[in-house]
């Protein structure tokens, strides 16, 4: 058990190391560096040399990578060329805002998805399942910018109930976000619910078809007792990982929702950074999002380990 956990942890760290390498190499390989991006068309001759010297870009790539990676571990991502301020300062509140969005959407979306997924599976191919499953396909496949646009059209333009865009400044206290944040949360929760619901449904159906459930049925175990004691615990285990992956994946994609609602989160900051070719900022955000992804994944792995008695007692 301890060895298993240690292995997972080591694998997670290795993955983050690899990701940081990919991010760094990727930015190196693309044409142009921070200075040509910053100086734009004036980037030539002496100005370019000076800028490169100021930011230490003329040193070997490996040295710069080492410096960057070591700084990142301590939470220091360097200085944004565009804003002339430390990146960690700018990123802080935006990161908080994206996390608020993600956590609230998960608090609503995950339980709802599990409930609906179980209902759809237990009443498989009945009208309730057809409705739930079809709606899920719609919610899952329609791009976020489309569903967000439709949400704004209905709830803020036609009905006038909620604000269509966020006007609160990015570093405002939490409570001021409440009314602004409802539509973005609904938009994100919609996609999240749809994805997770389908996984839960499949998982429950798989377990219902397994031998030991048929055995329980043959033995005459009461239906609901069977569902709660045998089906659900076994069906939930494999979904933990998928749920974490989905949430992490959606967080990487919140940029669209954040742009539509003008929400001051990490995604929109990333878009601005890319637009201004602020490469140091892009690297930092990419690393943060990737670490979040690995972290969530790791958390799900450990949760599965703890929740699964078969893995808990396994010796490797």
């Amino acid at each position: 058990m301890v060895r298993l956990i240690a292995r997972r942890l080591a694998l997670g760290v290795l993955t983050i190391l690899l990701v940081s390498g990919i991010i760094f190499v990727g930015v190196e390989v693309l044409p142009g560096d921070s200075c040509t991006a910053y100086l734009g068309r004036m980037a030539q001759g002496k100005r370019l040399d000076n800028c490169r010297r100021d930011f230490g870009l003329e040193r070997p790539a490996l040295t710069r990578y080492g410096e960057w990676a070591l700084g990142a571990v301590r939470g220091d991502f360097g200085v944004s060329l565009k804003r002339k301020t430390p990146i960690s300062e700018t990123v802080g509140t935006r990161f908080r805002n994206t996390i608020i969005l993600g956590v609230t959407a998960s608090i609503i979306g995950v339980p709802l998805a599990i409930l609906l997924g179980i209902i759809a599976a237990l009443w498989r191919d009945r009208p309730v399942d057809l409705w739930v499953s079809t709606t899920a396909i719609f919610a899952m496949t329609i791009p976020e910018f489309v569903s967000s646009t439709v949400l704004i059209l209905i709830f803020s333009i036609w009905l006038g109930w909620l604000p269509g865009i966020v006007t609160t400044p990015h570093d405002a206290p939490l409570l001021e976000f409440l009314s602004d944040i409802i539509l973005p949360i609904v938009a994100l929760a919609l996609v999240m619910t749809a994805h997770i619901l389908r996984m839960v449904r499949t998982s429950v159906i798989d377990v219902m078809a397994s031998d030991y459930i048929q055995m329980a049925q043959l033995k005459g175990v009461p239906y609901w007792q069977m569902v709660f004691k045998h089906v659900l615990p076994n069906a939930m285990l494999p979904t933990i990982n998928l749920v974490a992956l989905t949430i992490a994946w959606l967080l990487g994609g919140t940029v669209v929702i954040e742009v539509v609602f003008n929400y001051p989160g990490l995604g929109r900051l990333m878009l601005q950074a890319i637009f201004f070719r602020d490469l140091a900022m892009v690297q930092a955000i990419a690393l943060i999002l990737a670490t979040l992804y690995v972290g969530l994944n790791l958390f799900a792995d450990l949760l599965t380990l703890v929740a699964n008695p078969r893995l808990r007692t396994m010796r490797t």
Partner: peptide, 23 residues
Amino acid sequence: MRLVDAFLCLPWILVLLLIVVMV
């Protein structure tokens, strides 16, 4: 496969945007 795992951790939209802006 380790490399594949690492690639999958990157937010796809960031990668696409970065390439489109730089290239």
